[in-house]
Design a binder for these strands. Structure first.
Length: 199
DNA sequence: AGTGCGATTGACT
DNA sequence: GTCAATCGCACTA
């Protein structure tokens, strides 16, 4: 039973940076046995072609296979042995690139998110890539799935008017750290990172 | 087969 | 503000 529909792949920009910007304001939906969890995407980072910070920079490996799928597939990996990260594949099939989803504004299923996270504060549920994955119970099992189909995890069209989008350097990387490839909903309380990067 | 290192988070001074 | 946890992976040999 859905009152919202999956995004169509044809609508997704193929260009990684354009996709990172495009995803701001879209809805990410996770259907769990207990019910639906969803959130508005408020922060992304682009990891495009020829980007030394990108996991596909040195070619395809077993882990990064999903980055080479056509746009709109999930690339999920474990960071620091602790936190799961969700990316949306970008660029044409065979080209390795993607967009990291860094933060959500909770919409549906807040009680489920609280249970998954073990915290109460609304702004702590999905602010940060590892936290949002925990809130939505995202792990390796979702690696490679098509986010443009109504399934376990999928993308839906914009959840509200596009607001002003800010741009900054990416968070937590050392390679190519100067590139301004992070996008966020300006002023949102649900965006991660230092205050200086949310202006 | 061994090793160094993160696209982070939460606890702590 | 600082810092350790934790482990899969990519790289070297």
């Amino acid at each position: 039973m859905t009152d919202i529909l999956p995004a169509s792949r044809a609508d997704l920009p193929g260009d990684t940076t354009a996709l990172a910007r495009f995803l701001i304001g879209m809805t990410l939906v996770r259907d769990l046995p207990e019910g639906r969890v969803s959130g508005r995407i408020v922060e992304t980072e682009a990891y495009g072609v020829s980007d030394p910070a990108g996991h596909a920079f040195r070619g395809m490996t077993p882990r990064t296979r999903a980055l080479f799928l056509e746009p709109g597939h999930a690339y999920v990996y474990l960071a620091y042995g602790v936190s799961w990260m969700l990316n949306v594949s970008s660029e044409a099939a065979g080209v390795g690139a993607g967009v990291l989803i860094r933060a959500l504004e909770p919409l549906e299923g807040v009680a489920i998110m609280r249970a998954n996270r073990g915290v109460e504060r609304l702004t702590d549920l999905a602010r940060g890539p590892g936290r949002l994955a925990q809130a939505l119970r995202i792990d390796r099992g979702l690696d490679g799935i098509d986010l443009c189909r109504d399934g376990l995890l999928w993308l839906a069209k914009s959840a509200g008017d596009p607001s002003e989008i800010g741009q900054s350097v990416r968070i937590g990387i050392t390679k190519a750290a100067e590139r301004p490839l992070r996008f966020y909903e300006r002023g949102s309380r649900f965006v991660s990172g230092p205050r200086a990067l949310n202006t």
